[in-house]
Design a protein around this nucleic acid. Sequence first.
DNA 1: CTAAGATGTATACACCATTCACATTAGGGT
DNA 2: ACCCTAATGTGAATGGTGTATACATCTTAG
Lengths: 201, 201
Amino acid sequence: MPQAGAYHHGDLRAACLRAARELLEEDGSAGLSLRAVARRAGVSATAPYRHYADRGALVSSVAAEGYRELAEHLTTARPAPSTPDDLAAVATAYVRFALDHPAMFRVMFAEPCDPTSEERVAATSAISAYVRGIVRDAFPGTEDTDALSTSVWALVHGLAFLHLDGKLDSSTPEAVADRVRSSVLALFTLSPAIRKAAPSD
Amino acid sequence: MPQAGAYHHGDLRAACLRAARELLEEDGSAGLSLRAVARRAGVSATAPYRHYADRGALVSSVAAEGYRELAEHLTTARPAPSTPDDLAAVATAYVRFALDHPAMFRVMFAEPCDPTSEERVAATSAISAYVRGIVRDAFPGTEDTDALSTSVWALVHGLAFLHLDGKLDSSTPEAVADRVRSSVLALFTLSPAIRKAAPSD
DNA sequence: CTAAGATGTATACACCATTCACATTAGGGT
DNA sequence: ACCCTAATGTGAATGGTGTATACATCTTAG
């Protein structure tokens, strides 16, 4: 039975993760220090090193958790997305997640982020596959599904960041939802002008 | 005549900016510390405070310079853009800028960034206006130019970030250029499937 | 020429990441 | 039941960082 004595924590690894997430919510990414995490977990400053190689490793774990939660948030918004309309709904859910958890979202995407963290790679490729699945269902006639889903992800991701950075008004959830929705759909309803102007390959 | 004596630097403000940019190129955003800037400028650790309120102010100035250079980079790529093809070229230039100056790009967009820096606001609105101009010329028949240009900016911005974060292959400039180009254009060439699937308003 | 303001320095404090030697404990092999 | 080992947590120390404060030096306006 763990947690009998006070010397050993029991599950410090998980406690650190939880503390890190709380600090992120409260003080933003600036407040996420190893020492603060240790303090909150009620443990000495260097104890976390037994479970994380360095600060970056902790951050990577937090990010990975964020990816999983984002994925869950999206599937909750639309459990079985298969139409352009579903796609728009998922897109707004994506942006909403970013605005509801700004510090977490920044940790997930705005860090230097070495690509050697398997946890991160696995989690992001899950999201990528999810988007690809929706696009495949929503636009069955598409030749290059990968390219299109990349475009969609990039569009939504960019919208999230521009809102997050205050470059676009995000005062009300409705305003954001409307913009995301219309942005996603607008790009699909412009064909006449474009086909006339750019009839290449 | 400045720079006669050694006590006063002459133009420490500019020297700090230059030093900050060099450190950014060399060591990434992690190496950008006020103390390192001061060291490189050959000045005491607290001297920069005479010209910048705090670290954030320095970073904001660097970011503002980055915005201006990005704008210049884009206009150099296509001095008078007016077609979808031009738009694609400008888009690749945008992503290329991000990949060529990753640390700078992150400073520009991935920082918490209080919206109270006039320098930043002015510089970003310039880019926003530039994109809007291209879109207006490239798609004259569009009702809501603002919405469309927002979408375009978001798409390109998202592509830049996904490449930067290693979520998309950026091993060769050609691969990146092809993907950006096709991503931007692909979204304009899907009309049949979409109009059939989502015939709303 | 001098006094005041601008600019740079020195010192100090608090915080942080990280390392290392050490203390405590849990659990498996006997 | 016992001990030994590996896992886990502690404490002190090192070197880096942002920032405030008091002080030194220079420039320049009057």
